[in-house]
Computed example of a mutant assay.
Amino acid sequence: MVKIISDGMAGNVLQFPTMARKSKIERFPNRIRELREQAGLSLEQLGESAGIHFSNLAKIETGAREIKEHHLDQLAKALGFPKADLLNPEDGGLTPEERALVETYRDLPAAMKKTFDSLRESHQAYRGTGEIVPMVDTDSERKRA
């Protein structure tokens, strides 16, 4: 159905239902459009460098087409971002804070990574419980003092 809207001037404006629906999208299902626009790329340019037809890319950006693993790989490479950055945090992507932690971890020397890994492994039993686990055994600290 085509809706004719009079603009008070000499003509009418045609508004197709799909146009109205797309203009009201508040949250895209992924960050591809945001990252593409930050890079100053058009759909055609990103599609060409990622090996995805621009019409399929437009559908992926809006959620009209499911994003598959190989699409994530191609787009991450073309945009120069990790795959996790292409997704919204609600959909498995990383928040800026989580991204900073990952980048910090990747920059650590091997010895510090081993220390961090030991700490992470020792706290796996408490994940999701909400229980706060002290980093230092307070009883041992009192005995030393």
Rank of each mutant, 00 (worst) to 15 (best):
Q15Y: 03
R106G: 05
L75F: 01
M112Q: 12
D137N: 15
V2C: 07
E121R: 15
K114P: 06
H53P: 06
R27S: 12
A76C: 01
I5T: 07
M19Y: 11
L35H: 00
A20Q: 02
R21H: 00
S55M: 14
A50V: 02
E48I: 00
E103D: 09
L108K: 05
I132L: 03
H71C: 05
L119Y: 12
Q74W: 09
D7N: 08
R106M: 09
V102H: 04
K22M: 12
A76Q: 04
I4V: 15
G11C: 12
S23W: 11
L108M: 05
M19S: 10
R144F: 12
S140H: 13
K24W: 07
A76G: 05
T95H: 07
D107N: 13
G92D: 08
N56P: 10
R127W: 14
S6I: 09
A76N: 04
I60K: 05
L72D: 06
D139K: 14
L119H: 08
G47V: 02
S140L: 15
D85G: 10
G63H: 09
G80L: 01
N56V: 13
L94K: 13
R106C: 04
E141C: 08
Y126F: 14
D107G: 12
V2M: 07
I132G: 06
A100L: 04
G128A: 08
K83I: 03
E121K: 15
A145Y: 05
K22R: 13
T138W: 14
V102M: 02
Q74R: 14
T18G: 03
L86N: 08
E26V: 05
L119I: 08
A58H: 14
D85M: 12
D117N: 11
E48R: 08
P134I: 07
P82L: 00
